[in-house]
Write a protein that binds this DNA or RNA. Structure first.
Lengths: 336, 336
DNA sequence: CGTTGAAATGGGAGCGCTCTCAAAACCTAC
DNA sequence: GTAGGTTTTGAGAGCGCTCCCATTTCAACG
């Protein structure tokens, strides 16, 4: 249990076979007699042997390491539970598959050096990019160098890359449907910025829900925010002039601002205006009244990203694999 | 810029010196003529060379890797901004010092295997343990194997280990002083559990602030919660029978619960009862009224942990180094 | 101008693995 | 019993570095 780590060679001696055979056992390669395999495995188990990561990496073409890249811009969003949960999903799934996880945060100005440092110096088997902004230089580089990677969050411009994302469109549709089911007729929305996928997609979900219900789209009921609380407040003020009976905010923070604006106008939630948000931020449970919202499967998103990445790595998949996970409606009292 | 990574040998050929000399340049070792050093550095710069991490690790006794260990229990707390911010601080500081960061989350049941996998298989130069609970098996193992490590958050039982922590005592004292300065006379507190350092320390800060103000401690004004919103609510209900004019809650979540209880009792905040929390959770800015609280220097905590760890590693420090960072009072309207 | 010691440089060995290839062992089937 | 094939095993080389030690270079001094 304690004591220093042994080497392959020593395990080989202990089990009376050669280094090569032990290596085959460790890597689950064929062409080892069952009886021998078991014997070696037993010894490995007994002495608690673990292969030396660096040595494997140097000798083979595999590093058993995944690298998580977090662009600098994203760090601000760290206050939301989304990224930590994604990280948890990634780490757990990677560890289950016996992969190590490296974490790096890139400042914009150091992207170039960063790339060399991590990708060349460390040689991960694959890379997970957390939320690639459109102008991120990392993604094109990964493509160029043919390094398997998965982006969390659909990429706005570059097509044909592997990604894992929440179903923003479907989620928004569910949210708006929910308001319709509660009998709301005049549903407004506060969207996110057009430069972000989540902004665009959630807007589209809103439109499609109204469309399928045969309700006419009224442009004055659509105001663009920027995901902040403040933008929610001002957008709602603007919307109130149209007297909507419900509002779908594309983020909980904006919903918070909207609620504040509604109260300031002396209207009741949900009686006069029902509110639904998106994200299921921790604060959503504690607003007054508690906020109905769409919960993102954050942890699963991380886990899925790793699954996809491992398939790209081990199967040498050429064509990109993408997964979209559904968001879940969390009904609280703000929606009536 | 693009193209494959070169090796030390190739850099050596390009610069007309030997492998050894290039190695000296890379590792900033003495005994290289300035002129040669510059020439080599220029070439390295030009071709964007980065040493192969695995090779360095295998050859030398340094791995240039720090391992962050997150015990399973802690993951729940991930919804607070504390840990992500700490992670950011760790990663940035590590990268500035040219260290790689590995991330691992340990399930209780797999601690043993985990330890071998990460510590033996990966051989980090040092380990950062995020919030070691008292029963964590990792810390004793690290001590036994003489691996440099730093714990984030003071350890409750094991003395003489390196840690970085927020000044919970001083922070709590500041919070209570603030209430005293606002003229509050009868200040209650809702504490955290005694099993957690933050619980114990923040309680002590409360006591010491009253003590230095010459105010008598009244046990009925001290109720123990468990950092959850619910416990804050019930604790406050209990406290209201003593008619305090202020309450210091040892966490924002508990403060939230307390505010709810106060309102239910038809009392006004801060007029009848002033409230101060601890943590500066994102929700604190959006409560009604916004919550005065103690902001933790989370990112700095991570940065400090790395600084300390690097000193332990590079200076071969024997005796533990600890740092305590001050918490900052964020005044909002809940405190009057 | 030779001598001595320190500074600068180069070459070899080896870290612990994987991979390739050759050798050995084991199977058939005639 | 042996030729032909297949499975199993082992030995060697080498991944890209660092470390150690031998060698060369240089400066300073007698």
């Amino acid at each position: 249990m304690a004591g220093k780590n042994l080497t392959l060679e020593e395990i080989a001696t202990l089990s009376g076979v050669s280094r090569s055979t032990v290596s085959r056992v460790i890597n689950n390669r064929p062409n080892v007699k069952d009886e021998v395999r078991e014997r070696v495995q037993k010894i490995i188990e007994e002495v608690g042997y673990r292969p030396h990561g660096a040595a494997r990496r140097l000798a083979g073409d595999r590093s058993y390491t995944l690298s998580i890249i977090i662009p600098y811009d994203v760090q601000a969003i760290f206050s939301e539970p989304f990224f930590p949960a994604v990280l948890t999903g990634i780490t757990q799934t990677a560890e289950q598959n016996d992969y190590y996880v490296m974490l790096s945060m890139v400042e914009r100005s150091r992207e170039e050096d960063f790339y060399r440092r991590v990708v060349r110096g460390q040689m991960p088997d694959g890379v997970i990019v957390l939320s690639a902004k459109a102008d991120n230089k990392i993604v094109p580089r990964l493509i160029e160098d043919e390094i398997p990677f998965v982006v969390i969050g659909r990429h706005l411009y570059i097509p044909d890359i592997s990604y894992a994302d929440v179903d923003n469109i479907g989620g928004a549709r569910t949210a708006v449907r929910h308001l319709l089911e509660r009998g709301r007729k005049k549903i407004a929305t506060i969207t996110g910025p057009n430069s972000m996928v989540a902004g665009v997609d959630r807007r589209e979900g809103y439109l499609s829900a109204l469309d399928e219900a045969g309700i006419e789209i009224r442009p004055e009921l659509i105001v663009q925010g920027d995901f902040t609380r403040e933008s929610g407040y001002f957008s709602m003020q603007q919307l109130l002039s149209c007297q909507p009976d419900a509002v779908f905010a594309a983020s909980d923070l904006m919903a918070l601002g909207a609620m504040s604006a509604i109260r300031t106008a002396n209207l009741r939630i949900p009686d006069d205006v029902a509110v639904v948000g998106f994200d299921d931020a921790p604060v959503a449970a504690y607003t007054d009244p508690p906020l109905t919202t769409m919960k993102q499967p954050s942890k699963e998103l991380g886990a899925t990203a790793v699954d996809v990445l491992l398939r790209l790595i081990t199967e040498g998949q050429e064509k990109p694999l993408s997964t979209i996970l559904p968001a879940e409606l969390v009904i609280r009292s703000s929606s009536g």
